[in-house]
Nucleic acid binder design. Structure first.
Length: 540
RNA sequence: GCGGGCGUAACUCAGUGGUAGAGUGCCACGUUGCCAACGUGGUUGUCGUGGGUUCAAAUCCCAUCGCCCGCUCCA
């Protein structure tokens, strides 16, 4: 089925008008990269987080061999000891110094910039910049150097050797001698400027370097640093997963595309710890499971694109990563909803090194299982006999980690895009009228049902109130007796309520009501007592 | 961070120096017995913000904030 691309502006307008999403601090002119969820938005996002927690943590599907899998939850502080971020590499590696060209308005990564030295006798000595990943720019720099030499009646000696721009740029006077890659004159490049993507703050009264802390840029590290705590306190055995839903913060240079790239966002992350020998199996398990999860919540499979990252794209620590991407209407390219990464032993090893604490796993079952023929049952004693490394690794090892890391806000946005639809339904006179309907999966719909007395008299409101009070014990439902019934149906369509329960004259006689389906507008008559069960059935 | 466009009611938008507008929505009452019905009445504004020019600024000028597009960036 060919789908018409959702008009983002219409979606944004609907989200605001109906109270899904507002710009943060709007009355003060807003703030770039931050968003608020309104009364309906918070219900939608909560349903998404609850569905994830239920399906991944409380009731995960069986593992690759049909075995039960163990998942436990965690809720870590957003601010942690800054050493966590040194160990994870975020403090050192999370910022790329950038260089801007005042003339060409281009921006370059400083670590990719290199320079060729001009002829040493032509003063002032010039440096010709190019980027290491662009052959054309290298040739361009060479040409400029040769041209300058020729103009002075000299010749470059052989092929000049490139050097790192960073070295040259350390002195302001030499920086002024650099000719940018896309310009002809020197002195247009700025000094390298660091863009640290972590928000900083200070814990304690004094705003000193010692008190500096960071708002976490991901929830993952909290699970790694609590690995030992979970192991020691909850009787879990490998393989098992730790799951967490929480806020993370990245000082994005350029927030874009509605809530897609925000500076404050919520992650739903799993760190699944397993034996290194079994890690590929678990990687595939989670990759397939996570993709399927989106489909079961109503994301059309053609909009959902799993993409195995190429080797050159992989982060240095990752053995394999699959991005689960969604075709958002604002982009020609699919955009990442979730990354399922095989992180190997990278994180636990890094924290072991930094903290000096042992984060390896001792497999007691395997150890006890191999007891026969061994002189001692004490692992410590056995280690003193200098067994071969491979033998030790059978019982004690650093677990490998599979990390399915999903963006709660990104998925919420995908759900909104996916749900948005315009169709035509007949009005009272039988003419086709435009209709705006949010086709949320019933499980995610912010309001599950609306209870509507057909007219505001003859005891219908009272009867409807009765049903409303019963249903609201179980679901988010709305009661509405305002205006004509058709208008009320449309209002509910616009916020994606899957069912409208209407109380009419027959209800008063035989206690039956009609249930209207949001997508088809079809109605069925059922006994009032069956309504709860009917809604429940749709939510499974 | 750069360039371009935009910013007026909850939403969509009109308003090019002289009283702040329309449609939709929303609320109330009446009517109405199943798909944005009808009648009557009502409601909504720091014209993004700050400053300047002017007798007078939504309108012209400057700055600033935000949104959209492109570039850049996105471990």
């Amino acid at each position: 089925m060919a789908t018409v691309k959702v008009d983002m502006e219409k979606l944004v307008s609907l989200c605001r008008r109906r109270g899904f999403i507002f710009q943060s601090s709007e009355i003060y002119g807003g703030i770039n990269g931050f968003w608020d969820y309104g009364p309906l938005g918070v219900e939608l996002k909560k349903n998404i987080k609850d569905a994830w927690w239920q399906d991944m943590v409380r009731n995960p599907p069986p593992g690759p061999e049909g075995q039960e899998i163990t998942m436990v939850g965690l809720d870590c502080a957003i601010i942690m000891n800054p050493k966590v971020w040194e160990a994870s590499g975020h403090v050192g590696g999370f910022s790329d110094p950038m260089v801007d060209c005042k003339e060409s308005k281009k921006r370059y990564r400083a670590d990719q910039l290199e320079v060729l030295e001009g002829h040493p006798e032509i003063l002032p000595l010039l440096y010709y910049a190019y980027t290491s990943n662009d052959q054309d720019l290298l040739r361009g720099a060479l040409k400029k150097a040769e041209k300058a030499a020729r103009a002075a009646g000299k010749k470059l000696a052989g092929t000049p050797v490139g050097q790192a721009f960073m070295n040259v740029a350390q002195e302001a006077s030499r920086l002024a001698q650099v000719v940018g890659p896309d310009v002809e004159v020197p002195g247009t490049l700025t000094e390298p400027r660091a863009f640290n993507l972590m928000f900083e703050s200070y814990a304690g009264a004094i705003q000193s370097e010692e008190n500096k802390v960071y708002l976490r840029p991901e929830t993952a590290q909290g699970m790694f640093v609590n690995f030992r705590n979970v192991l020691d306190s909850s009787r879990v055995k490998l393989p098992f997963g730790i799951a967490q839903i929480g806020k993370a913060f990245r000082n994005e240079i350029n927030p874009r595309n509605y809530t897609f790239r925000s500076r404050e966002f919520e992650q739903m992350e799993i760190e699944f710890f397993c034996n290194p020998n079994e890690s590929m199996k678990w990687y595939e398990y989670w990759r397939d499971l996570r993709k399927k999860w989106y489909s079961t919540l109503g994301i059309q499979s053609e909009n959902l694109k799993p993409r195995e990252q190429g080797k050159e794209e992989l982060a240095h620590y990752s053995i394999g990563t699959t991005d689960i991407e969604y075709m958002f209407p604002f982009s020609e390219e699919p955009q990442e909803l979730e990354g399922v990464a095989h992180r190997g032993a990278f994180d636990l090893t890094a924290h072991m090194t930094k903290s000096g604490k042992d984060l390896s796993y001792f497999d007691e079952e395997a150890w006890n299982g191999d007891a026969a023929g061994r002189k001692t049952n004490s692992f410590k004693e056995w280690l003193k006999t200098n067994p071969p490394k491979e033998e030790i690794a059978k019982y004690q090892y650093t677990p490998h980690v599979i990390e399915p890391s999903a963006g709660a806000d990104r998925f919420t946005l995908a759900v909104l895009c996916e749900a948005y639809s315009e169709d035509k339904v007949p009005d009272a006179k039988g003419n086709l009228e435009e209709r705006l309907v949010m086709k949320f999966h019933p499980r995610l719909a912010p309001v599950k049902a609306a209870i509507l007395p057909l007219v505001k008299k003859e005891g219908m409101p009272e009867k409807a109130q009765e049903l409303y009070r019963e249903l609201k014990k179980h679901f988010k439902v709305e009661y509405d007796d305002g205006g004509a019934i058709g208008r009320r149906y449309r209002r509910q369509d616009e916020i994606g309520t899957p069912f409208c329960i209407t109380i009419d004259g027959d209800t008063l006689k035989d206690n039956t009501v009609t249930i209207r389906d949001r997508d088809t507008c079809q109605q069925r008559r059922v006994p009032m007592g069956d309504v709860l069960g009917e809604i429940r059935k749709a939510l499974e």
